[in-house]
């Protein structure tokens, strides 16, 4: 740890990405990336779930709301799910939720689903590096990108449903 690297890092925007990896494929792949000593961007915080089918869209909302710049979901390849079809459910929820996020002004690069099998440590590296770069280019997540003429109206709507001031 050196002061140099600290200042160096402070100059650049470092995205915060929360990743939800399924226990059987992607979490194991991330372990494999580790044992293979593949280096990747340190911006990802991995949270283990048993199956990508456990990924509640509310977790994504929660992560964005709490300051994540991106959310990554990792699951088994189609047909390989340890629980038969959890990854298909994850995919459906992902597709639906992605389109909602887009309408909320959250770029699609910020929410990503990848199938990564237990043997694809290199894919963990590739996906995380790619996503980190993409989000770095996008900049920090701004949740208040509402056109000004609509801003007031939206604020009112949101007040009505009990969300405090921010658009989500």
């Amino acid at each position: 740890m050196s002061n140099d690297s600290q200042t160096e890092n402070a100059q650049q925007f470092e995205p915060r990405i929360v990743a939800f990896f399924c226990n059987w494929c992607t979490y194991t792949a991330a372990d494999l990336a580790g044992t293979s000593r593949l280096k990747y961007a340190p911006n990802v915080r991995v949270i283990r779930i048993m199956c990508s089918g456990r990924l509640d869209p509310q977790f994504v909302v929660k992560a964005f709301r709490d300051g994540a710049d991106g959310v990554l979901i990792g699951g088994c390849h189609p047909g390989d799910c340890h629980y038969q079809e959890g990854n298909y459910k994850a995919y459906r929820r992902y597709a639906l939720f992605q389109s909602m996020l887009k309408h909320m002004g959250i770029e699609e690069e910020r929410f990503r689903l990848e199938w990564i099998s237990a043997s694809e440590g290199d894919k963990v590296q590739k996906v995380i590096n790619e996503m980190t770069e993409q989000i770095r280019a996008l900049g920090p997540l701004k949740l208040t990108s509402v056109p000004s003429y609509r801003a007031q109206e939206v604020q009112l709507d949101l007040a009505g449903v009990g969300v405090e001031g921010e658009l989500l």
């Binding site: 050196s2 690297s5 600290q6 890092n9 580790g34 000593r37 593949l38």
Partner: peptide
């Protein structure tokens, strides 16, 4: 095992 930078690790 996967991070280059000691501070960030």
């Amino acid at each position: 095992w996967v991070t280059e930078n000691e501070y960030l690790a």
